[in-house]
Design a protein around this nucleic acid. Structure first.
Lengths: 142, 142
DNA sequence: CACCAATTGAGACTTTATCTCAGGAGTGGT
DNA sequence: ACCACTCCTGAGATAAAGTCTCAATTGGTG
């Protein structure tokens, strides 16, 4: 889904140099299966400084390579693919996250913004539920 | 909007005793204008222990007296009135928050959950923009 | 009023994140 | 290929937010 050949250009991010540490972080992020927290990334890349990991994540988010997902009170989690507008369907049991590509709430959002006299910036929709695996698997082990 | 006469029953929350400190926290929360963070509440109630403030906030949220609002990477903020399902329209400039009472996205949410085979738990929609005051006031001071 | 269990709160601890600044490493010019 | 110049890195200090512990306190009951 993500254009991994664009890696080279992405390495520059908002910076003027394509450095080694950043290469490691970006490659790890791009290869990551599922979502991750900043601390998880730090832990799996002990050879890269925590500050660099956080800086790179911030840039990747700004560039739209990854998007940040807030689940309840937990630390933010990151996912590949933030460029195009989308939403998330989160499994509250196993933590699986599905991208919802089509935004079906634009009209409603427009209406609300107009009603309150707001100049629209954006919106965020997250749907919570239990995925078919978790629903289907329940009771099987008891 | 919130039934403040229900305060007495709310004081019990999930606990078995209506204590003094909890009374202070609940009364402060109910009287609070706008939204607040846990730390702000702690700071304005130095006579109540931090642990008690956090415990009471958690109970109030569970009981639906307040709802938690996550704005970007900042600490969660709390608002009165979480009982009935609703959403928020947040001003990215001044931080004002409007409640959106009617949920216009139920159909879309149902459709998506069905498409992914999820058993629906709930959803969260937040709309970001700049309120009429912030839009209107801009340039006035420059 | 006394008793006892529920609750409190000071402060230690954890987790997550940001900041600082000396040293290291890309990059362009030669 | 090398140098120099500047940007970037990273160890560790600091900050922010929240949880946990346990002795002391207190509300509710008989």
């Amino acid at each position: 889904m993500v254009d991994r050949s664009a890696l080279a250009s992405v390495l520059q991010l908002g910076f003027s140099r394509a450095t080694g540490p950043r290469k490691i972080v970006v490659e790890t992020v791009v290869a990551w299966e599922g979502h991750f927290s900043a601390e998880e990334l730090c832990r799996s890349l002990p050879q890269v400084g925590r500050a660099t990991v956080y800086r790179t994540l911030a840039s990747l988010q700004e560039e739209g390579v990854i998007c940040r997902l807030m689940i309840d009170g937990r630390a933010p989690r990151y996912l590949l693919g933030g460029t195009q507008h989308h939403h998330h369907m989160v499994c509250t049991q196993c933590g699986a996250v599905q991208d919802i590509a089509d935004c079906g709430v634009d009209d409603f959002v427009d209406t609300v913004a107009e009603r309150f006299g707001y100049e629209l910036d954006g919106h965020r929709l997250e749907i919570y539920g239990r995925c078919s695996t978790c629903v289907g698997g329940e009771g099987a082990s008891s």
